[in-house]
Simulated scan of single mutants.
Amino acid sequence: MLQPKTRWDIFCTVVDNYGDIGVTWRLARQLVAEHALEVRLWVDDLRAFERLCPEIDIDVAQQWQQGVEVRHWPSDWVHTEAADVVIAAFACQLPSDYMDVMAEREKPPLWMNLDYLSAEDWVIGCHGLPSVKYKSVQKFFFFPGFQPGTGGLLRERGLLDQRRQFQHDRAAQRQFLQGLGIDRAADAQLISLFAYENTGLASWLDVLAADAMPTHLLVPEGRILGDVARWLGVETLSVGALHVRQALTVQVLPFVRQDQYDHLLWCCDFNAVRGEDSFVRAQWAGRPMLWHIYQQDEDIHLDKLDAFLALYTKGLSPAAAEATNGLWRAWNAGLPIAEQWLAARNHWPELHKNAEAWCLEQGLQADLAAALVQFYLNWI
C-alpha cells in the first residue's frame, strides 16, 4: 500500500493539441482520486489544456484542479523539489535543472518514460526495462498496451459499469444529447466523427447521404471540419451548424470535456476517432469504431495500425475481419472508403458483438494507473 503523501510529478509537452494532455490529465486525476497520491502535472501549454478543463486559468502558473496541482512548465525553470516518482510522458525531455535535483535526492526517485500506446509485439519485451541513466537516477520504459506484460490502458474504477447503465437508459441518453442541442431522429443511426484531415471523407459522406438508412453525424470541433465544409459546399462550419443532405444530417458540436466525450461515444452506434486518448475511450464504449492514427515519418504508424488490427479482429469471421481491415487501412491512407464502408455494414451485428467482447477482454487487465502504482511498489 502506498503512503498517502507519496508525491508524483508528471511532465507533459503538448505536441498534438490534445492527445498528450488528454492522457496525462486523465492519469493525474485518477492517481489522486483512486490512489490518494499527491500529483503535480507540469504542462507547457495551458491554452490547449483549457479546452479539456475550462476551469484552468491560463495566466496562473500554479493552481489546483480536481485535486491535482497544475503547474505551468516555464522556459526558465525555477527550483523545485523533485518528487518520489517522476513520469516523462511520451519521451518528453525533462528540464536539466530538475534532473539535477532528482540526482541530489538522498533516495533517487523512480523515473519512468510513459511511452505511446502500441500493440506491436516488441512492446511486451521492452516494458519495464531500464533505459538511460542520469547520474544516480535510472529511467525505465513503461508501455501502455493491450496484452498481458504491458502497462494496460487508462480506465477509471467502475467505468464499464457506468457505461453499461448509461447505454441501457434511453432517457439518460436523450437528456444528454439534448443538452448538446442534438435532436436525434428515432430511426437514424448516430455516428461521431473526430479525425485529422482526410481526403477520403467525401466518399464516406456521399454513401451516407445516399443510404436508405438516415444518419445523424456528430462532428466535434476539430481538424476534420474543413473537409466536412468542402463536402457541404460551405465556406466555414461553426459550432451549432446543422446541414441536411438527403439521408445525412451533419451537426457541429462544441469541443467537449472528457467526461462528456465519453457519454457522446456511449450514445453513438459508430465512432470515428483519432490519436490515442480518444482511441482508448472509443474502445471502452463497446461500439464499432474507426481509428485515424497519428501519422509518423516513413509511415511507421501503419505498423502500429496493423498490429492493433491483428488483435482487434482476431475474434471476427474472415469476411468481417477483411472488411474491417479494408476500412481502417483505406481511411488511414486517405483513400475513398465507400466500398469498404458498405462491406463493413454487411457484418454490422458481428462488429457490434466483437466491439463489446474486446472491451470486456481489455477490462480484465489492470488499468494503467494501477499498473504504474504497482510498478512503483515493486521498485521500492
Rank of each mutant, 00 (worst) to 15 (best):
K304S: 08
I182A: 04
D277C: 03
W348V: 03
V123D: 05
Q283E: 09
V132H: 02
V207Y: 00
V85W: 01
P318D: 02
S192H: 08
G128Q: 08
S238C: 09
N198V: 01
Q340W: 03
D44R: 14
L302P: 01
G145T: 03
L327A: 06
P130N: 12
V15E: 11
C126P: 00
A343D: 08
T80V: 12
Q65S: 09
R287Y: 00
A103F: 05
T249L: 06
W42R: 09
V70F: 09
A88P: 06
L248C: 01
F279G: 03
M102S: 08
R329L: 10
F90K: 09
Q246F: 03
V14S: 04
A88C: 05
D169T: 10
V250L: 09
L201H: 08
A370I: 00
G363I: 06
D297L: 04
F166H: 10
R174Q: 15
C53N: 02
L327E: 05
N113D: 10
H35N: 12
A195W: 04
M102K: 04
V244D: 11
N332A: 05
W231Q: 12
Q365W: 14
V252R: 01
A307N: 12
V273I: 09
A171F: 10
F142G: 01
C12K: 11
W331I: 04
D20Q: 10
V60E: 14
T13D: 09
V86K: 01
Q138T: 13
A357L: 08
L160F: 00
C126N: 15
T313R: 01
R170T: 12
